[in-house]
């Protein structure tokens, strides 16, 4: 059992939890994720390790309520326990040094981009970060991102904060300013990563994305997380989760992401009803 040490609401439907998991904290590196299970009847869901504290033996997760499991998780309180936390899973980010890098985090993707930004900064890269959300209210970790970035660009779709528009437009803006960018890292909704990839490709800036496919075991045993990269089948959990964005078949992934849509709806509605909501 893994105890929840602290909980915080960052924005509507977005939560930050600190969880005691010394085995995971000991080895965690930027780019890796973990799998949690709430209780005996729970499913296994992957979440990025958004931060870790090796002294306390804790890890931080940030999640957005999108369905049954994440909603139920949001009702957990300090002192409650998760049945399982397993990790760190996936390959750590391949970090470079002395380069100019642009980090893009969209929506809840701001959380997973943070540890990568932090590590890249520590490795002497010039870090420019772009974070974006639909509206100002949903933005979080601006201060944390500022600390690990040489420059931080904030954007919102509706212009309630920072630059109005999508993160892709901010990226294109940077490129048009004549910035020489060595690599882009983008994490966010699948559709955002797809568009970042196509903008970056236009200007031929190498880009890494972290794929958030549906997973079960997270150890390369089931193939639920498979995706097509460079025309070949890859398992996001064991071969990724980071891949060369130009080689990923995003259209396939967009379809695979909603393969259990009806079942997810049944589970969520049943859960809300049971809770009397």
């Amino acid at each position: 059992m893994y105890e929840i040490l602290a909980t915080r609401m960052l924005a509507p439907k977005i939560f930050e939890f600190e969880v005691k998991a010394p085995n995971v904290a000991r080895k965690a590196q930027a780019g890796q994720f973990l799998i949690i299970r709430l209780h005996e009847r729970g499913e296994r869901i992957p979440l990025t390790i958004a931060d870790y504290n090796r002294d306390i033996g804790s890890i931080t997760i940030v999640f957005q309520v999108v369905g049954k499991t994440t909603d139920e998780l949001s009702t957990f309180k300090e002192g409650d326990k998760l049945a399982d936390v397993v990790g760190p899973l996936g390959n750590p980010s391949e970090l470079e040094n002395g380069k100019k890098v642009v980090l893009i985090g969209g929506g809840v993707g701001i959380a997973p981009i943070y540890p990568i930004a932090k590590s890249l900064k520590e490795a002497n890269n010039e870090v420019v970060s772009i974070i974006g959300s639909r509206t100002a209210e949903l933005l979080f970790w601006e201060d944390k991102m500022k600390q690990v970035s040489d420059r931080l660009i904030v954007c919102t779709d509706d212009g309630t904060k920072g630059r109005k528009g999508f993160v892709t437009e901010a990226l294109e803006g940077l490129i048009n300013e004549g910035e020489k960018i060595d690599r882009v890292w983008a994490i966010g909704p699948m559709i955002m990563m797809k568009f970042v990839a196509s903008v970056a490709k236009k200007y031929n800036v190498p880009t890494t994305v972290s794929l958030n496919t549906i997973m079960v075991d997270g150890t390369g045993m089931c193939g639920a997380c498979r995706c097509t990269v460079d025309g070949k089948i890859k398992f996001a959990c064991a071969d990724g989760p980071e891949f060369d964005a130009f080689k990923v078949d995003f259209d396939e992934l967009l379809k695979r992401a909603i393969r259990f849509k009806e079942e997810e709806k049944i589970a969520y509605e049943r859960y809300l009803k049971g809770r009397g909501a």
């Binding site: 009847r41 296994r44 499991t69 079960v216 089931c222 193939g223 259990f260 079942e263 049944i266 589970a267």
Partner: peptide, 21 residues
């Protein structure tokens, strides 16, 4: 493996009693 793991390990045959579909 995915099919059987969902059903056996995760008990998807008892969905939605169990969460895995």
């Amino acid at each position: 493996n995915e099919f059987l793991t969902r059903v056996n390990l995760m008990k998807a045959y008892l969905f939605p009693e169990y969460d895995t579909p």
